[in-house]
Amino acid sequence: MPLKVIIVDDSIITVKKLIVLLEGLGHQVVATAGTGIEALEAYRAHKPDFLTMDITMPDMDGVQATASIISEYPDARIIMVTSHGQERMVIDSLEAGASGYVLKPVRIDKLSDMIAKVMERTA
């Protein structure tokens, strides 16, 4: 059963790579967003099974965008896919409500494991 997913990242290259990885895992990318505000709008429109979220973005950053989505949809499953590995970023993201954390470069096995964990945790 393919899961519906939204990719949030302002890097076109990352979005393309994630589409290939996620579709390779059998999931369906229903939307992509390049800003925090677009992410919230896409979430409202598609109610995906999970969402991948970058941290550095124009307008609202990924941590704020996560907090906004969670405040509206407390059961949302959000996986941070980022290059930021600093402890503060990790804690801020998890406090905002993220359910998983994957650091770039994203490998398919790492992403697949994290999706399985996130879906299990919030099942």
Binding site: Q86, E87, V90, I91, L94, Y101, L103, K110
Partner: peptide, 23 residues
């Protein structure tokens, strides 16, 4: 890259622990 992969593995483990703690 090689150095960052080691650091990132630690950061991911840290995130996993924080998630388990929250759970």
């Amino acid at each position: 890259t090689a150095l960052k992969e080691v650091q990132n593995a630690l950061a991911e483990a840290h995130a996993e622990l924080a998630l388990k703690h929250r759970q």
